[in-house]
Amino acid sequence: MTVAFEDIQTGQEIAPLVKGPLGTMHLMRWSAAMENWHRIHYDRTFAKEHDKLPDILINGSLKQQFVLQFLKDWAGRDGWVWKVSFQFRAMNLVDETLDIWARVKDKRDIGPYGLVELEIGIRNAAGLESTPGSATIALPHRNGSPVPYPFRPSA
């Protein structure tokens, strides 16, 4: 199911994707899947005593997968996530639950499809925003053709 460009309103909030609580098993599984052995993501003693961190950190590389999953699912099969930008401004610690969220900032019709500009981020249960950013999503018109794939930006 793909949302149509015409159905999008500026200011609209998108239902968040919730991930977690993300415990050490989640983080170890991710480290193993991507073969990244950075100790701050599974070795509490190293994280706290060597790197002086408050606890084990949730991987930024895992958080960015969540952002892409959220945007991809919202764009649907006929849409396309074109650009995504985010900063890791604050740490997320093991056992936190993350809400991946977005709000429509702007939209413009460029002919064969529409482009939607989103403000995005990741908040924990305490409301801390850790990963602010933006995204540009290409959406098809209602009753129109899917966004071209592979995606080649229109002039």
Binding site: H38, D51, N59, G60, S61, Q64, W80, V81, W82, K83, V84, S85, F86, Q87, F88, G133, Y149, P150, F151, R152
Partner: peptide
């Protein structure tokens, strides 16, 4: 020096 991931910008085509 310690290393942390500060952020990413991506542009996706396929």
């Amino acid at each position: 020096y310690a290393l942390l991931n500060g952020g990413t910008e991506v542009e996706l085509f396929r």
